[in-house]
């Protein structure tokens, strides 16, 4: 969090985490197209020729003043592919909240779990942990044929009982709900801890 009292701005950083191809970039693209241009900046994407995130995507959102302060939300995605490990560490610096985009397909469970463990490890290096940090789970790709039932996903991934949103990010379903839930998690934690 960065508070600039002269400009009365509060900057919060929210990172979309999750395994490769789970739909993190698709979330940001939908938010970008959905929001009025007066509420958001340009979408910056650093990607490979194959459209995979190479370093990060970035999008800034603003909403109207609240109690005199202007909240700004800086949304980042990480590259999910396993070998971009160092980039993920860099993007997580200064993070205030996380959206974990899980892939609901039956054959992606190992990747979801590996990515969640990787997130936990990186949060610990930043002095946080999944247990005491605001994060939400998005179960994405609910439109595909062989998806894992929600209760099974919860049993495997939601051991800290964080908010869950079902999504079809490619159609925008659940995307704004996920973001709202993540923002409220961050704001709720500020009230409790600081």
């Amino acid at each position: 969090m960065f508070v600039n009292w002269a400009l009365q701005e509060v900057n919060l950083k929210i990172v979309y985490y999750g395994p490769g191809l789970s739909g993190k970039t698709t979330n940001l693209e939908f938010i970008y197209h959905k929001l009025d241009p007066s509420l958001r900046g340009d979408l910056i994407t650093l990607k490979t020729r194959e459209e995979r995130t190479l370093y990060f995507d970035f999008l800034q959102l603003e909403v109207g003043r609240i109690k005199g302060m202007k909240p700004k939300f800086n949304l980042y995605t990480i590259p999910g592919q396993v070998y971009y490990s160092y980039s993920r560490k860099i993007i997580l610096r200064g993070v205030d909240g996380v959206v974990f985009v899980a892939d609901s397909q039956a054959d992606r469970m190992t990747e979801n779990l590996d990515s969640l463990m990787d997130l936990e490890q990186n949060l610990i290096e930043n002095g946080h942990s999944l247990e005491n940090f605001p994060w939400v789970l998005q179960y994405n790709k609910r439109d595909l044929p062989r998806v894992i039932p929600i209760n099974e996903l919860n049993a495997k991934l939601n051991f800290h009982r964080v908010p869950v949103v079902e999504a079809v990010a490619s159609r925008g379903a659940g995307v704004m709900e996920t973001l709202k839930s993540a923002i409220q998690g961050v704001v709720g934690r500020v009230q409790k801890v600081i």
Partner: peptide
């Protein structure tokens, strides 16, 4: 300033 009223208004 980030109190429950702030959370409500932000929502």
């Amino acid at each position: 300033f980030i109190d429950s009223e702030f959370g409500l208004l932000l929502g």
